[in-house]
Design a protein around this nucleic acid. Sequence first.
DNA 1: TCAATCACTTACGCTTTGTAAGCGACGATC
DNA 2: GATCGTCGCTTACAAAGCGTAAGTGATTGA
Lengths: 119, 119
Amino acid sequence: MGVEVTDGTIGLVGDDCGRYCPSFHQTVELLGRRWNGVILHALMARAERFGEIRAVIPGLSDRLLAERLRELEREGLLSRICPGTSGAPRYVLTAKGQALGPVIDAISSWAADWAQAAD
Amino acid sequence: MGVEVTDGTIGLVGDDCGRYCPSFHQTVELLGRRWNGVILHALMARAERFGEIRAVIPGLSDRLLAERLRELEREGLLSRICPGTSGAPRYVLTAKGQALGPVIDAISSWAADWAQAAD
DNA sequence: TCAATCACTTACGCTTTGTAAGCGACGATC
DNA sequence: GATCGTCGCTTACAAAGCGTAAGTGATTGA
């Protein structure tokens, strides 16, 4: 959805909201909160266990990973699945989390095109 | 671009990178750094002047706006245009910045669908 | 010319993050 | 069955980032 404006460039806006949209704000802050983006990316690439996620993301510490997983669970983006009595818990995306796929994709695609480019 | 996996769910990955991609990481951290997302959103909705941007985004202070604008300029997402000798500077997106349109759109669309939903 | 606004900058305290160490539960090994 | 190693966290503390508030020089307006 792009809105043509007078001079021919494209002004992209979400839905009904013009220049500021609280739900957009909320989403972009959640997505971009440190590590959240890459954690979701890893989950979409089928990482499931705590250690597995941590191993995939360089620089991410236990502490922050635990905190972010709790947060993402609270937001309903993933579920923590504890198998019966013992065994390691697994983290899987909910429908809400899966729905972020296109966002992750759009970012990946932009990153591929522009990541290092000077302008 | 979605990759079908065994059980029918969709694992979305950027390009060639499987579970972790540095350029994706860099991008998502930049985009999600506090206020950056909404600032870009405002710029796409054609806000151009310092005070204009600040007025549109509730809670954003002068200090952080100045810092973020400098940062986004350094990253090449926007240009700071100083008209000749005097007059207020204007901020406009570069091609690189404009290219984030689809990302902003994807986020807006997700926000519209899921922002407040419980699951 | 005097005040007001604009686009910032500086100073300071609080919150979030990074680093490192520790802890209980479980599995494998001796 | 005691020890060792790993896994999934938690705790403690220093550093970095952020929010609030006040200040500054350059323009604009009365």
